[in-house]
């Protein structure tokens, strides 16, 4: 005889669990790391030391218990979306950092050229063509 037991996906990310409950139209209120289910006696999710939210309920016939598989499915969906969003934000932040570095480098080049040209008596005309900088240095000698 053998048995296969599968646990629920641990509800670790609170925001995703709350979204899943909202999607399932389960009314709740929050008290720190405790999510109290409204309309159910002593039914709540609270965060264990392990970090996951565990459902505790007075009646095992509680509607929340019967809805756990659907809550889990929605949690997984929202968790994946959340991870994707975080990855996009991380990539965007990295892209912005690299772009700022490039802009700072180009600006430093521009300033140094202008400073040295002015010191040599050149008049400078500057034109921007998109991201391209065009400098025309002109000096008249007799």
């Amino acid at each position: 005889m053998s048995a296969v037991v599968q646990t629920l996906t641990p509800f670790i990310e609170k925001s995703c669990l709350l979204k899943a409950l909202q999607y399932m139209e389960i009314r709740f209120s929050e008290q720190r790391d405790k999510i109290l289910i409204q309309g159910e006696t002593d039914t709540y999710f609270d965060r264990e030391l392990s970090g996951k939210f565990k459902l505790t309920c007075y009646f095992y016939t509680s509607s929340v218990v019967t809805m756990l598989p659907q809550i889990e499915q929605k949690y997984i969906q929202f968790y994946k979306e959340h991870m994707k969003e975080l990855e996009e934000k991380r990539l965007e932040a990295e892209r912005a950092r690299i772009e700022n570095e490039r802009r700072a480098y180009v600006e430093k080049q521009r300033q140094e050229i202008i400073k040295k040209a002015e010191a040599k008596g050149y008049k400078i005309k500057e034109k921007r063509n998109g991201n391209e900088i065009q400098l025309v240095l002109v000096k008249h000698t007799y």
Binding site: N131, K139, H140
Partner: peptide, 12 residues
């Protein structure tokens, strides 16, 4: 009067 001209382009 002579003119010295330097055209510089810094691309993106």
């Amino acid at each position: 009067m002579a003119e010295k001209r330097i055209s510089i382009t810094i691309d993106e």
